[in-house]
Design a binder for these strands. Structure first.
Lengths: 137, 137
DNA sequence: CTGACATCTGAATAATTGTTCATATGTTGG
DNA sequence: CCAACATATGAACAATTATTCAGATGTCAG
């Protein structure tokens, strides 16, 4: 019985082959997936996240000040900024012996912003009724 | 001398202590940062990204079909889904011996959507009702 | 030029993370 | 009950990634 089963070209059993086909056709290319995973990955580290939120708030900061706001070593900050720079997420302008960094990717800025909005850090745009008298749950 | 320099409580030199203070005060708590990094991290893996975009497009899929759309082994899919389940990103409903998964986090859905929109890939963004795509025939 | 400074970099180590294999759990039909 | 099946899980291994240390580069003041 079980008339709803099928097999794909590799011999794997499928339950809903039609849907699998539709989904497969709609998925982004491997290249796009890799690129997107890269961006999310950059945002997936607490250190880099503190760096980026510092820049989001401070606009432009030098390496030593970023080390202070993020509680990282200057070396770690420099390494992280290099990665972010390589992905065009931040840009640098050097004045004298200082290097001032700023956020330079509107896409990432939006993702950051959307992320922060939903961690309770800012008021969420959610239909969750939180009366101002409400304290603890 | 050196009127523009200062030192924080740990002995580190700062260039713009005022700004550092402002930024430090505005940063999310360590807990919020860790939570947000966690979410971004979940989206930072190509496999999980393919799983989630599959669910975004397909609405509800069982493990074996997800293995087919993502080109992952069923074991890898199961492990990934467990992680996503632990973070409440997907939910499962078991019918018989199958387990059907679907996207269950509006926040993540938005991040995914925003991410996909900006990688040049415009996935057909359907009206939000991806929960019950129950296709009986 | 020289010495102090800010930042950058490479290489090694340490930590985290993904993948696989083997097996466990729970379900269905006979 | 049993065998076939779908999914879940743990532990071992492989791969990736972060952090540190030592030293390099380039800048400024004198």
């Amino acid at each position: 019985m079980a008339a709803r089963e099928a097999v794909d070209e590799c011999g794997v059993k499928l339950v809903d082959p039609d849907k699998v086909d539709v989904v497969r056709a709609a998925l982004p290319s491997d290249h796009d997936i890799a690129e997107l995973a890269d961006v999310f990955s950059l945002l997936g580290d607490p250190g880099r996240l503190r760096l980026l939120t510092s820049l989001l708030e401070g606009g432009e900061l030098c390496v030593c000040d970023l080390a202070a706001t993020t509680a990282m070593s200057e070396s770690a900050v420099s390494h992280a900024l290099r990665l972010l720079r390589a992905h065009r997420v931040v840009s640098v302008s050097r004045r004298g012996r200082m290097a001032y960094y700023r956020l330079d990717d509107a896409h990432v800025r939006m993702l950051l912003d959307l992320g922060l909005t939903h961690t309770g850090h800012t008021i969420a745009v959610h239909p969750e009724r939180t009366a101002h008298a409400q304290k603890d749950q």
